[in-house]
Amino acid sequence: MRNEELNGLYLVVDPSMDHEVLLKKIEESLKGGIEILQIWNHWPDGMSEYDKEQLITYIIEMAGKYGVPVLINDDWELLQNTDLAGVHFDSIPDDIDKIRQKVGRDFIAGITCSNDLEVVKWAEENSFDYVSFCAMYPSPSVGSCEIVRPETVRKAREVTDIPLFLSGGITPEKIDGLEGLEFNGVAVISGILSDDEPKEKARNYNQALIKR
């Protein structure tokens, strides 16, 4: 996938949820039009690597029917035994060249950024596919992340043309408040996963993105 194709609604899912509930919500979210899916590395205590790989494989099969790439959060080693499309790093990894060598195939690479534009510059220099800013607003899913200043996003667009995603407390209604910022999509967790109608909620996000 070329990085200019990375855009739209990006869903981060929590594998610590009841898996029957989680898979149903993922299926409904896919029907609602998500474009990218990331599995957060928030695994249940004691879950084996085999069981992680089995769950990942099932999610990949679900998402594949909709042409949606599935990424893993930080646990890049899981790319070696699964068909994951990529990895999202929460911070700059120690040796990205060694990671790429060990994975042994092309993969989508993204990274979280707060207000430190050095992360954006590093992502540009290391041919990353996207940057996700967190958090734009307070959210129960992002813990104690600092709030990203709009000016940071503006300056990021001046130094790179790679796709930029915004995340953290973003609701469909708050997308209007992001007017004037150049970004390619929004990433959500609880905004969809905590909703009783994830398909409709995903559609609401997409409608808001189209209108902006």
Rank of each mutant, 00 (worst) to 15 (best):
L6D: 14
L6A: 06
L6M: 12
N7F: 03
Y10T: 03
V12D: 10
M17K: 14
H19T: 09
H19N: 04
E20T: 10
L23N: 05
K24T: 12
K24I: 11
E27F: 05
E28K: 11
L30I: 07
K31L: 12
I34D: 01
Q38W: 07
Q38Y: 02
I39G: 10
D45K: 12
M47K: 13
M47F: 03
S48Y: 15
E49K: 13
Y50W: 08
K52Q: 15
K52P: 09
Q54I: 11
Q54G: 02
Q54E: 14
I56E: 05
T57R: 14
M62F: 09
G64I: 04
K65T: 09
K65I: 06
G67L: 09
L71V: 03
L71I: 06
I72L: 00
I72G: 03
N73I: 08
D75C: 03
D75P: 02
E77N: 06
E77Y: 05
T82G: 01
T82Y: 01
D83F: 05
D83A: 06
G86M: 01
V87H: 05
S91W: 09
I92P: 08
I92W: 06
D94P: 00
D94H: 12
R100T: 01
R100P: 02
D106C: 03
A109I: 14
A109Y: 05
G110K: 11
I111S: 06
T112W: 03
T112M: 01
N115C: 08
L117W: 10
E118V: 07
E118M: 05
V119R: 09
K121W: 02
E124M: 10
E125A: 13
F128G: 04
S132L: 13
F133Y: 07
M136R: 08
S139H: 13
V142S: 15
I147V: 03
V148N: 12
V148G: 09
R149L: 13
E151D: 14
T152E: 11
T152H: 14
V153S: 07
R154L: 12
R154N: 10
R157Q: 01
F165P: 03
G169C: 00
P172W: 04
P172K: 14
K174I: 00
G177V: 03
L181G: 10
N184A: 14
V186F: 08
V186K: 10
V186E: 04
I189C: 11
S190G: 02
G191A: 10
I192G: 04
I192C: 08
L193P: 06
S194K: 15
E197D: 13
E197V: 11
K199R: 15
E200Y: 14
K201C: 08
A202N: 10
N204L: 15
N204F: 03
Y205S: 01
Q207W: 02
Q207S: 12
A208C: 09
R212I: 09
